[in-house]
């Protein structure tokens, strides 16, 4: 039974230097050889915006961009992305200005409890980076790995469509009557 002969963890993994550019900033930390990227990001680089919903690849809350590709950080070995550029939700905004995708999620109900939001934002930003004119089908394929229990996805898809319009230059970054509310620093400095 539990705790008798069976002791699960005997040897220890060695520690190595892990370095990567996270949201434009170089990080060098010591991480064990067997580390998972999600744990390193949350525990060592302070990116608490990257969420852990299942740890098993089934919720997408942990999605980050690695060299522009959206990937599940809970299923990625940390040391395999040594030297890569990593973008988390914290790295989407342009300085203190929200990225269109963030603003649209806020304005179109793309985020309710918000726990899945970081993953959705990264996955959809990765889509928009390559395709500013995605069809509804392309949008749903891009977010099929993200689970949302609150919104029923519909307003998320609408948010992404609205952001795509901004990317295409068809809509203003300021879309709703509450735009001022959605940009935390309307006159803030550009970075």
């Amino acid at each position: 039974m539990v705790g008798e002969e069976h002791v699960s963890m005997i040897p220890a993994a060695t520690s190595k230097v892990w370095s990567a550019e996270v949201n434009g900033q170089k990080h060098e930390v010591i991480a064990k050889s067997n580390s998972i990227l999600l744990d390193v990001l949350r525990d060592k680089t302070g990116c608490l915006g990257v969420k852990r919903g299942c740890d098993m690849g089934t919720c997408g809350c942990c999605t980050v961009m690695i060299d522009g590709v959206p990937r599940l950080s809970c299923l990625t070995m940390a040391h395999e992305v040594n030297g890569c550029e990593i973008t988390t939700v914290e790295g989407l905004a342009n300085g203190s200005h929200l990225a269109p995708i963030q603003q649209c999620f806020a304005e179109h109900g793309g985020s309710q409890c918000g726990f899945c939001t970081p993953g959705f934002l990264v996955a959809s930003q990765a889509l928009l980076n390559n395709n500013a004119n995605p069809t509804e089908k392309e949008i749903s394929c891009a977010i099929e790995g993200n689970l949302c229990r609150c919104t029923g996805y519909q307003q998320i898809v609408q948010s992404i469509q609205a952001a795509a319009a901004i990317h295409r230059g068809e809509a203003d970054a300021v879309t709703s009557n509450n735009a001022a509310h959605s940009d935390p620093h309307p006159d803030g400095p550009e970075m």
């Binding site: 040897p11 064990k32 050889s33 067997n34 580390s35 740890d55 395999e80």
Partner: peptide, 11 residues
Amino acid sequence: MLMPPFELHQP
């Protein structure tokens, strides 16, 4: 969740 201890080799 916690990974079991192992050494990752990257040839």
